[in-house]
Design a protein around this nucleic acid. Structure first.
Lengths: 172, 172
DNA sequence: GCATTACTGAAACAGTCGTGTCAGTGGAGG
DNA sequence: CCTCCACTGACACGACTGTTTCAGTAATGC
């Protein structure tokens, strides 16, 4: 049950890491940037690990909100790609990739399970969007795994090159 | 023109970061693990940034050697996936992803351009493997971009879940 | 033999890290 | 009024960071 001040500072910290990255964030610069102090951050979140965990949960909340907003049914892949390729979402997606990579390198700590969780979240949405008669077949599983791979791979490409035209054309 | 001792230590350091990650490596633990000292690492590589740069170049050399070894022509995608999905290559690929993400978050420093460079390397191999009559068409570009996305996205999935059966089936 | 070169050890530098301690605020409820 | 509670400021602690200084050692080339 977070207090008002806690969610307020979490939002500010979230905005901060979206532009500065999560990997080598440190308390003092972060606190200074959001008009707080290390003392308060530690008081509210217990430890730096607690803060990172809260930030990761915050990012995940954004992701789940997106998936809920996209909905299910025909055309999900296109709708997902429209969202992923929107320039405004690039900082979030870079943060997402950073957390993904980190959770693979360091399977313990606050990052644990982040990568696996997002794979499952997305696969579930794709599954719900499949016709009922293929949803539980091996073919259906293969299809949505392929769709997910295509989206994620295209995202990697887009984040690195910024070449939206080429990547979007490849997905059409 | 690196000295013998330099390449020897670089190999040892490379083996170290393959298991420990590159993001939060620090000189003293690294030096202790490979039987050296910070003094020597700094002497040989100039600075930590120089060392990281050398390690990134080393990883990239592995990648380019792979691409040369795979060759070009029909079936490249399958051959590439066989290599990517081999369990023995997982540490290298995790390191690769880590460097990829980092180069997006921090476009300056030793990581600069890593992500973009690998996209271009791989696209070029896929291009060389296409029939001559589509190689320079918009369709050819879209096709190889899609093939690359599929491979990279599948790799992300595999690294997170380890579910080689599902992911490989999706690529078939 | 002697100077040059490549490498190495020990210790210290200034700075940053996360965290703990101690002492306060200010407002809300009894 | 007074107590409780959420929050905050200042400061210090020990550990760790990359880097530098000063001092060697061992081998190589002349």
């Amino acid at each position: 049950m977070p207090s008002a001040r806690e969610t307020e500072l979490l939002e500010a910290a979230y905005r901060y890491v979206l532009t500065h990255g999560l990997a080598d964030v440190s308390l003092r610069p972060l606190a200074a940037a959001i008009g707080s102090s290390t003392r308060v951050l530690l008081y509210l979140f217990g430890s730096k690990e607690g803060l990172v965990r809260a930030l990761l949960a915050r990012a995940r909340a954004d992701e789940l909100a997106l998936l809920a907003d996209i909905g299910v049914g025909p055309g999900v892949v296109a709708r997902l790609w429209a969202w992923l390729s929107a320039p405004a979402h690039r900082p979030l997606l870079t943060l997402w990739l950073e957390a993904y990579a980190r959770s693979l390198v360091e399977p313990d700590g606050p990052w644990a399970g982040f990568a696996r969780a997002t794979v499952e979240d997305w696969l579930e949405v794709l599954r719900a969007s499949q016709p009922a008669d293929v949803r539980d077949t091996a073919d259906g599983l293969a299809t949505r795994t392929r769709e997910l791979a295509l989206l994620r791979g295209a995202l990697l490409d887009l984040l690195a090159t910024g070449d939206e035209q080429r990547v979007s054309a490849a997905l059409a």
